[in-house]
Amino acid sequence: MQIFVKTLTGKTITLEVEPSDTIENVKAKIQDKEGIPPDQQRLIFAGKQLEDGRTLSDYNIQKESTSHLVLR
């Protein structure tokens, strides 16, 4: 499924993911596309910070959901 990640600069990154993917996996995909190390990434969805060990389905992130990327 596709999800979108919006950066603070207003850029939207499109990612191909599975509901069973962990947040860690998603951060690795963002690193592949954008070159941002996962330890600098914070992903926010529905006002919550997403934890590495959880999956997209844990957070009820469905296709075409948009989460926000904040850099630390």
Rank of each mutant, 00 (worst) to 15 (best):
N60V: 04
L71R: 06
S20E: 10
R72A: 13
T9L: 10
I44K: 04
D21V: 04
K29M: 13
Q49H: 11
L8Y: 14
K27I: 03
G35W: 03
S20W: 14
I61K: 01
Q31T: 09
R42Q: 13
T66W: 08
I30P: 00
E34Q: 07
L69V: 07
T12D: 04
L71K: 05
I61Q: 01
L15Y: 02
A46K: 14
I30M: 03
Q49G: 06
K11D: 07
N60F: 06
T12P: 03
D32T: 11
I30W: 00
K63N: 14
L43P: 00
D52V: 05
L8A: 13
G35R: 05
R54H: 11
P38A: 15
L50Q: 01
G53F: 11
K48G: 05
K6G: 04
T9D: 12
G53I: 06
I36Y: 12
K63I: 08
D39C: 13
S65P: 12
K48F: 09
I3R: 01
K63D: 12
M1Y: 14
N25M: 15
D39N: 12
E34Y: 07
I23A: 02
I13N: 00
I44H: 08
K63A: 15
E24S: 13
M1C: 05
P37S: 08
G35M: 04
L50H: 01
G10S: 04
T12V: 14
Q41N: 03
Q62T: 15
E18N: 13
Q31Y: 15
V26Y: 01
L8C: 15
E34K: 04
V17D: 00
A46Y: 09
A46C: 12
I44W: 15
E24M: 13
E24K: 12
V70L: 14
V5R: 00
T66E: 10
T14W: 07
S65G: 10
Q2C: 10
D52N: 11
M1K: 03
R54C: 10
G47M: 04
Q49A: 11
E34V: 15
R42T: 15
T14L: 10
K11R: 12
T7L: 14
I61W: 04
I13K: 00
D58Q: 07
V5M: 03
A28H: 12
R72S: 12
P38N: 06
M1P: 02
L69M: 07
R72V: 15
D58R: 02
T55S: 08
E34N: 08
L15F: 04
D39F: 11
T7S: 06
L71E: 06
P37Q: 06
